[in-house]
Design a protein around this nucleic acid. Structure first.
Lengths: 229, 229
DNA sequence: ACAGAACTATGATCTATATCACAAAAGACG
DNA sequence: CGTCTTTTGTGATATAGATCATAGTTCTGT
């Protein structure tokens, strides 16, 4: 983790919708209670179970949110910046309920939790934007959960690939930012099943694979697979 | 649905933490934009896909939040009052992203969405309480998701029974508020599997079943099953 | 009280995907 | 450059739980 330290929220070009609505005085409060950090691929941003007094704002890169389950670690979601993560630590206990790890080189701003709370209390529009953002996340996660539960592995993998292409990279060709084992944790499958299913999609000509690079050549077909489960 | 209509938020004894922090003027705003309703068992409170301009506050009873998946309806969570439901409709589109159905006779207050938003904007403490509540829900749902995914059916059923006993009824003996088919939608299993697994728990002497009534006689053992999956 | 619907019970079979076992390939690093 | 670790590929086997089929039971409305 590299620490650029001091940041300037006023001139920051990757501000969240929430920060957009702050006034000058509030930006000053934020600025003096905010520190930047840079993470390399696979570096842990925060760890489940650890005490914290910060909320993280992911500015660039890609982050996985993951949590220990009864039998293994599971990736709850992939977070594309810009996005706040770890907001639930505003709750009393201040213990991270999940881990966050960079999947690509990632820049993060840490905001002191009490400052975040102060801004919520002071500025209703800020609070409103935060609520919107959490609600959006909530709905997305509901959908993802249902899909994970009800689709079988082909559909879940197709979903993941389409998500990476459409939402994360906005390109039909991209380098997989996760190992197949991670991908398994994300779509709830074993590494072996991921390998086999990827192989199947490749054999059927729906995707091209060159090392880490994946190219979705038949997105319509992938979407159909995603639909049918 | 029976409509008591006019409610008085000032004297309401089942106020949320959020409403607790409102001042007199805000309570007046709330009161004039709030209507009560009573639902019978299995009555729909709101329907996924329908347009709405209200947020619901469940005062008493028990509610299931459920949503259509690719292959079937799934119960996302059981909501024990008091609790707001449907907050995500504060997002632009105002379309319910899931359904809510009463599992027991249930009383609900509907709050006009714009009023809810006004209160968030006006009163930072209200906003803060709302955020706390959503965050709490979020964490609970993460845990539930991971458990659903990683545990097998015995563990999932044990979880559900312990949840009903400990969180909902606060008693080791209770009448199942869901059919076995619903229970299947809740723990992601078929009705047949629920029947068999319940039968198994009964045969093993961990629970007693008399019609709809269930009595957890070996909670420690159930907890062990829940842990081991 | 009775007919129709909804719910519960249980056995027989099938299947998607986990597990296990091993090997090859690709990265990491002294 | 070679060793060590991590990642990927692939077959053989096992299994939890779905699906199918059939009946009995309880609820609901008239």
């Amino acid at each position: 983790m590299d620490l650029p330290g001091q940041v300037n929220c006023e001139t920051c070009r990757i501000r969240s919708c929430a920060v957009e609505v702050l006034d000058q005085q509030e930006l000053d409060i934020l600025k003096t209670n905010c520190a930047g950090a840079v993470y390399a691929r696979n570096e842990r941003i925060f760890q489940q179970g650890s005490l914290t007094s910060n909320i993280a704002y992911v500015k660039t890169g890609l982050v996985k949110i993951h949590k220990n389950g009864p039998s293994k670690d599971q990736i709850l979601k992939l977070v594309k910046p810009p996005r706040f993560i770890g907001i639930p630590t505003v709750l009393g206990d201040r213990i991270n309920n999940y881990s966050a790890t960079a999947l690509l080189p990632t820049t993060v701003c840490f905001i002191v939790t009490s400052t975040f709370k102060t801004l919520i209390m002071r500025n209703g529009r800020f609070a409103n934007e935060v609520i919107n953002s959490i609600c959006q996340d909530e709905l997305t996660f509901y959908d993802r959960s249902i899909n994970q539960m009800q689709k079988q592995i082909h559909g879940r993998l197709a979903d993941a690939l389409l998500f990476l292409a459409d939402e994360i990279f906005e390109a039909d060709s991209f380098d997989l930012p996760l190992s197949q084992s991670d991908l398994g944790d994300y779509i709830h499958a074993t590494r072996e099943s991921v390998t086999r299913t990827l192989g199947r999609l490749k054999a059927d000509g729906l995707i091209q694979v060159k090392g880490k690079n994946i190219k979705l050549t038949e997105k319509d077909m992938l979407r159909k697979i995603s639909k049918l489960g």
